[in-house]
């Protein structure tokens, strides 16, 4: 690790700085275009520094756009509930499977692993959730389908428990007549913070960025749309106009599509919370992934 070469230090720093610049640059473009009027973009194109700061888009969102604010609230709500459920299930399953002497352990592991390889596809999945479980047109439609449990996360969790919780600790607790559930809450969870933080971030991102569930399950209750659904719906409407622009009668609709800067502004507010929260998780991230990623 500790190479002496000063040259290598410089080299590493330069390369990483360039890479960081590349990752951040597009977001600067996004913010900049949300602060530029459409007329300016039409003339000068997208640019990194707004020629003239124009906050119309944001005023439009926060003054008249109660719909946008509501969608924003929905995103928070769904992410909160969904992530909580996800983490509880993942933890319970991961912990169960981490018990090496568990009857049926191999079978249960494969039962979980198999779901990573096979799926029934869009329509069957839709039929199960909408007709058997009836989540359509409720907030449950945003929370349950597809996102509530990921086999991958369960495997990460299991691996973390098996490799990071010393067996002796559990045995000692058993001696103290602590129950298995008690051990989970008193020993395993407190010792698994990095992994839990990592999985919380994974799950929260999946919920925050999802637009499929809203599109499929909220057909008759679009006032429950999340911010990603709003963004996606606008994009779809624009593509529709592009594909069917031949229909002259559609011309009247152009006024219903929010302007470019408004769309960019919605995009900006959709990522702000993530960027704000993420550094707090980030400190656990490296430790969480490390051991989880490698098989134990």
């Amino acid at each position: 690790m500790a190479g002496k070469g000063r040259g290598f230090q410089v080299f590493s720093n330069v390369i990483l700085t360039i890479l960081c610049f590349c990752t951040v640059m597009p977001f600067v473009l996004l913010v900049s275009s949300s602060l530029t009027s459409d007329a300016t973009i039409a003339v000068y194109g997208y640019s990194f520094f707004p020629r003239q700061i124009d906050t119309t888009a944001y005023r439009y969102l926060f003054l008249s756009g109660s719909k946008i604010l509501k969608a924003y609230g929905m995103t928070f709500l769904v992410t909160g509930i969904g992530t909580t459920l996800n983490i509880c299930c993942t933890m319970a399953m991961g912990y169960l499977l981490s018990k090496k002497d568990l009857p049926g352990r191999a079978f249960l592991s494969f039962f979980i692993f198999f779901t990573m390889l096979f799926n029934g596809g869009m329509i069957p999945s839709y039929i199960v959730w909408s007709q058997l479980i009836k989540v359509s047109d409720t907030i449950a439609g945003l929370i349950f389908p597809n996102l509530m449990l990921s086999a991958f996360n369960v495997i990460l969790m299991r691996t973390y428990f098996t490799t990071n919780i010393p067996n002796e600790l559990c045995e000692a607790a058993e001696m103290d007549s602590d129950t298995q559930v008690g051990i989970l809450f008193h020993i395993s969870i407190p010792l698994s913070k990095p992994m839990l933080a990592t999985l919380t971030l994974f799950s929260a991102l999946a919920y925050w960025n999802d637009w499929i569930n809203g599109l499929y399950y909220l057909v008759r209750k679009k006032d429950l749309y999340t911010i990603q659904n709003v963004l996606n719906s606008m994009q779809n409407n624009i593509q529709f106009l592009r594909d069917f622009s031949s229909a002259s009668s559609l011309g009247g609709f152009a006024g219903s599509i929010p302007t470019l800067s408004v769309r960019m502004a919605i995009a900006v507010i959709s990522i702000v919370p993530i960027l704000a929260i993420y550094p707090f998780f980030q400190q656990y991230f490296v430790r969480g992934i490390v051991i989880g990623g490698v098989k134990g």
């Binding site: 319970a92 999945s125 509530m148 298995q180």
Partner: peptide, 29 residues
């Protein structure tokens, strides 16, 4: 010994059956 742990994990397995295994029937389509 592990009865409560099974119970805790049960919702997760039920979820996988609903979300992942039941739609597999649709593959007959």
């Amino acid at each position: 010994k592990y009865r409560f742990l099974y119970l805790l994990a049960l919702p997760g397995f039920v979820y996988l059956i609903i979300n992942n295994y039941m739609p597999m029937v649709g593959l007959v389509l």
